[in-house]
């Protein structure tokens, strides 16, 4: 009777996510100047990628599903890119 046990990948992802949470909180208190924001967003992106790949099962999916899943990110990229371009380049 082992069919109720969670796969190791899920347990690993869960523990990894909690470890990354602890890491990002700890690093937030280390003075890195502008680096703090980069670190916070980078760790957030890694956490999101773990959730997408393992909890949302994208690692088992083929091209079409990945295109559908990536479409949202693509449009988000356009939104942030065009939306922020003026503000970050204005002198």
């Amino acid at each position: 009777m082992t069919q109720w046990r969670p796969p190791l990948a899920l347990v690993g992802a869960w523990l990894g996510l909690l470890a990354l949470l602890a890491l990002t909180v700890a690093l937030a208190y280390v003075p890195l100047g502008a680096g703090n924001a980069v670190v916070a967003m980078s760790i957030g992106t890694v956490k999101a990628a773990l959730v997408a790949a393992i909890f949302m099962e994208l690692r088992h999916r083929n091209g079409l599903t990945l295109v559908f899943a990536g479409a949202g990110l693509f449009w988000l990229g356009i939104l942030l890119w065009l939306g922020l371009m003026d503000f970050v380049t204005r002198t």
């Binding site: 990002t24 909180v25 937030a28 208190y29 280390v30 003075p31 890195l32 703090n36 924001a37 916070a40 967003m41 760790i43 957030g44 956490k47 999101a48 959730v51 997408a52 909890f55 949302m56």
Partner: peptide
Amino acid sequence: AALYWHFVDVVWIFLFALIYLPGRAA
């Protein structure tokens, strides 16, 4: 439903980084 729930989780991961983490080192 699980895809939706995980998505809500991902949103929170970013809200957490944007809301709680800035300005702590100072």
